[in-house]
Simulated assay, not measured.
Amino acid sequence: MLQNERSRSPECAREKLDQYVECMNGETTLRPAARQCGVSLDTSFHLRHRLMALVENDSYGQLSGIAEEDETFFHESHKGDRKLQNPRKRGARSQRKSRNTKTEKKASVPLIPVMVACDRNHHVIDAVLKKVSTEELQSQLEGQILAGSTLCFDAHLAHEHLAEKLSLTAKTLVSSSGERVKEGIYHIQTVNAYHSELKRWINGFFKGVATKYLQRYLGWKRYLKTHTFSIEGFLDQISIHWAYQHIT
């Protein structure tokens, strides 16, 4: 049973969960979703995360043809962590500091690497990484790109032998030298556009998310990017998980 819904029957909780699907279109924040479904803000949070968790690790087909891979970075965040100090007190102290100190503090926040790979048919693979390395990228992409495909990426030490290890054709672009397109068709503009869209959605629309939930939001965004959202379609997707849970 959902948290903050303990007094309700399981049927009622399930009804609220089904109702909340309407708010999973990626265009509704927690407070409007709570009002729309007639639940508390806390319950809105738990409903969203329960539904996100169901599609977090779903895959929607291998990449094929011309694929692109690149990394982007998010600042480490503990948003919503009630164990941290009162943010008002923390903010009051920061207001007494100089602008330079604020800038230095922001720059010192750890960066969390996120890998995104996609093809020209809107298939997406993503992962939060511990670090950008050949080994970690290989582990995330192994078996996810159809044999015979071409993988485009920029010149980075971690990418140097990546395509070889994955048995793919490599097309390396030296972005630092202004190389944007190779042979007229090979580029990483598709994946970089996805990075921009992802950051606008997470940092702009949602005002950031806690790092511990970042992979969950990646999975939700991947679903929205791969499907034309509909309540029926999302219910069909998550019903597969519910059926599997009851069978096992």
Score class of each variant (00 low, 15 high):
Asp81Lys: 01
Asn100Glu: 15
Arg82Asp: 00
Glu76Asn: 04
Lys83Phe: 05
Lys102Val: 04
Asp81His: 02
Lys79Val: 04
Lys83Ala: 09
Ala107Tyr: 04
His78Val: 07
Pro110Ala: 03
Gln95Leu: 11
Gln95Pro: 00
Pro110Tyr: 04
Gln85Leu: 12
Arg82Gly: 06
Arg93Ile: 07
Leu84Trp: 00
Ser98His: 04
Lys79Trp: 02
Arg82Asn: 06
Val109His: 04
Leu84Asp: 00
His78Tyr: 11
Arg93Phe: 06
Asn100Phe: 10
Val109Gln: 08
Arg90Thr: 12
Arg93His: 09
Arg99His: 08
Lys97Ile: 06
Gly91Phe: 08
Gln95Gly: 00
Arg99Tyr: 12
Lys83Pro: 01
Lys105Leu: 09
Lys97Ser: 11
Asn100Ser: 14
Arg82Ile: 02
Leu84Tyr: 00
Leu84Gln: 02
Arg88Lys: 13
Thr103His: 10
Ser77Ile: 06
Asp81Gln: 01
Gly80Phe: 01
Glu76Met: 09
Gln95Val: 13
Ser77Glu: 02
Lys97Phe: 03
Lys105Trp: 06
Ser77Val: 03
His75Met: 09
Lys89Ala: 05
Ala107Gly: 07
Arg88Gly: 02
Lys97Gly: 04
Ser94Glu: 11
Lys89Leu: 09
Asn86Trp: 01
Ala92His: 10
Val109Asn: 05
Ser108Tyr: 02
Lys102Glu: 06
Arg88Cys: 03
Arg90Ala: 11
Arg96Val: 10
Gln85Lys: 14
Thr103Arg: 15
Asn100Val: 12
Arg88Ile: 09
Ser108Val: 03
Arg82Thr: 07
